Simulated assay, not measured.
Amino acid sequence: MASLSIFNSESDEDCWVIQINDMVSESHFSILQKIPVCIFHVPKSLSRGKPEAFSPHLVAIGPYTHFRPELYPTERFKIFAAKAVLDHFKKHELKQVVQEFHDTATFIRASYHKYLDLKDESLLYTVAIDALFLLLSLIHI
């Protein structure tokens, strides 16, 4: 019988071990105690009746839906929006914003009830792009 695993490779498993050690380190433990888990997948028992009502159809926001293939065509619009916001605030690189978020990866992960199978850098780029995209509607560029 084949075993089921969340890992695609040995390096994925090594990354997992490193993440677990980071999460329970003294520097992160006090942070994790203060953050309530607040972002959930909709339980099957709620979404079973009308699943399309509980999933995005046009734009993916957040790491749970960000890499869904059917939503990826709109990703370029989010990137254009992010660029417009960066230009508005005279920031020239998305990389700068991601670097400013660098120390928040643990906070972000702690806000999700399921394991996010993304490297910190991918998670931070996802959050930065989505945040800038949402910010565009507030600043009316």
Score class of each variant (00 low, 15 high):
20 I>L: 10
132 L>M: 06
62 G>R: 12
111 S>W: 04
105 A>F: 00
23 M>Q: 07
71 L>S: 00
37 V>R: 13
126 T>D: 11
123 L>Y: 00
46 L>W: 09
83 K>V: 13
26 E>R: 09
93 E>T: 12
19 Q>S: 09
107 F>K: 14
96 Q>L: 11
32 L>I: 04
48 R>M: 07
34 K>Q: 05
8 N>H: 11
125 Y>K: 07
87 D>A: 08
1 M>K: 14
33 Q>Y: 01
29 F>N: 04
130 D>F: 11
8 N>F: 01
34 K>N: 10
131 A>I: 10
15 C>E: 06
107 F>I: 10
68 R>W: 05
2 A>D: 15
26 E>P: 12
72 Y>F: 08
60 A>D: 02
13 E>M: 05
83 K>T: 12
19 Q>H: 12
62 G>K: 06
28 H>N: 03
67 F>K: 12
64 Y>A: 00
104 T>L: 15
45 S>F: 13
24 V>S: 09
83 K>M: 11
100 E>T: 03
23 M>V: 08
8 N>T: 14
118 L>F: 00
108 I>P: 01
10 E>D: 12
141 I>K: 11
109 R>Q: 01
45 S>V: 13
110 A>I: 02
131 A>Q: 09
109 R>A: 01
42 V>A: 03
12 D>C: 01
26 E>N: 15
25 S>A: 01
19 Q>T: 04
19 Q>F: 04
15 C>W: 15
139 I>F: 01
102 H>L: 15
64 Y>C: 01
112 Y>K: 05
28 H>Y: 10
93 E>K: 09
121 E>T: 10
69 P>N: 12
108 I>Y: 07
57 H>E: 08
80 F>L: 08
75 E>R: 13
3 S>M: 15
26 E>W: 08
94 L>M: 12
21 N>M: 11
29 F>E: 10
90 K>S: 05
136 L>W: 08
85 V>N: 04
23 M>K: 11
33 Q>P: 02
69 P>Q: 10
59 V>C: 02
59 V>S: 06
36 P>S: 08
124 L>K: 05
140 H>E: 15
66 H>F: 01
106 T>Y: 00
4 L>D: 09
26 E>S: 08
40 F>W: 06
39 I>H: 04
107 F>V: 13
76 R>S: 14
46 L>R: 04
25 S>K: 03
141 I>T: 07
12 D>G: 00
101 F>C: 02
111 S>Y: 02
64 Y>T: 03
125 Y>C: 05
59 V>T: 10
130 D>E: 13
5 S>I: 05
43 P>Y: 00
71 L>I: 03
93 E>H: 15
100 E>G: 13
59 V>A: 03
134 L>Y: 13
116 L>I: 02
18 I>F: 09
74 T>Y: 13
93 E>Y: 13
82 A>F: 07
17 V>H: 14
83 K>Q: 10
128 A>I: 04
80 F>K: 14
39 I>W: 01
131 A>K: 07
40 F>Y: 14
39 I>G: 00
119 K>E: 03
97 V>H: 09
136 L>P: 00
27 S>L: 00
